[in-house]
Design a protein around this nucleic acid. Sequence first.
DNA 1: TTTCAAATTATGATGCATCATATTTGCTGT
DNA 2: ACAGCAAATATGATGCATCATAATTTGAAA
Lengths: 222, 222
Amino acid sequence: MDYQLDTLEHDNLGSTVYQLLCKALIQGRLQPGARLKIRELAEQLGTSVTPVRDAILRLVQEQALTMQSPRDIRVPFMTVERYLEIRAIRIRLEGLAAETAAQKADASAIARLEDIISRNAQAMTAMDSALGCELNQQFHFALVDIAGLPFLQGILYRIWLQMGPLIAAVYQQGGSDMIDYHYPVLDAIRQQDGPAAASAIGDDILHGGHSILLHLQARAQQ
Amino acid sequence: MDYQLDTLEHDNLGSTVYQLLCKALIQGRLQPGARLKIRELAEQLGTSVTPVRDAILRLVQEQALTMQSPRDIRVPFMTVERYLEIRAIRIRLEGLAAETAAQKADASAIARLEDIISRNAQAMTAMDSALGCELNQQFHFALVDIAGLPFLQGILYRIWLQMGPLIAAVYQQGGSDMIDYHYPVLDAIRQQDGPAAASAIGDDILHGGHSILLHLQARAQQ
DNA sequence: TTTCAAATTATGATGCATCATATTTGCTGT
DNA sequence: ACAGCAAATATGATGCATCATAATTTGAAA
């Protein structure tokens, strides 16, 4: 689950706390609007404030957290504009990943994607939305991994970090026809058709993410 | 020059030091391979180690610096593979920026681009490669700014941060026909032709950056 | 009872002491 | 003179004390 941003994630406490918080964000355990207190976290984790401060500063930098005021650190709300911008970026970048993956995928890579998709289908029938959410994410990151683009992986990880609380919230509401659009991606990769794979992942982001956009627009009107 | 990653760059010392180091990286004052020592920097800047440590951790996170070993923080060398990956990403992302800018550009935006280009031409005739380097960068970031995509700006800023030491080194060697490819971009934007603008900026990245690739390949053979 | 201000508390920022370890230096024995 | 080991030094990691300020509470006066 940790896509190790830094190839050498040196095991200092700050990085450990950082990864903990990342996981919490992606799994939706930190709701948008939630406030984080350094001392409180430090006590919970049994460390001093320094590593927690390091981790939070890192997350603030990459805008996975916001510092509304110097003493007020929160999980940010996603806006419609921001989501649309991120969506456009994702289509370009994940398109690049899918295209490259289609060119490089061997049998084991395809098997890996098939496995993720089938487990995702299972999770859907079992109504396990948390697992479905995680497997959806695994699919997208498997593409970048297969493509062999570590730098791109880092960028996409940061993007997903910001969408984490939102996506988890939407998934918990149940709406998740997201898996349907993964099959065309897999087909294109099987045929080593890069442009088709890019186009298919673009469809996934556009259509699969439609319920996310509806969710945002509904909240914006409140 | 500071494209303010965080909309509210809260003026704590750590952020100040961070921006100082960013500027040093982009201007090429920190050569690839140079080692950074926290205490040394703290003394130079007249602060304690804490803000410097904050800043360096941030830069390590976004891979603008590397921690080879836990005590060895250096400006990383660019590899050919990494450069090619970054180039592919830039073509996608700056293409998006140019396309959007073409749709949104008004008269003042076009004037702004014209100004940058003409000053860049001046700098080239005056053989002022440092200024040319900075104006080249300003042109690329003006596109994202005109496009009104703040999130994309953050991503691109981080990418440029990593290329900073390399680009500055190449510019100092004199090779900079980079400006020629800016004119077609401007023309496409004048005509509000998004796809043409995207294509033109792609040409700029590919051809204008050719000397960078040569520089890297030459060094790789040493 | 309400309002405003002073005091208290909470919280992040910063500086710094200390620790562990890697590197360098120097001493000793062959 | 050189190899090897030990001491000294350098350096980042971590914990924590203190500071400034924002938020909250309390108390007194109207």
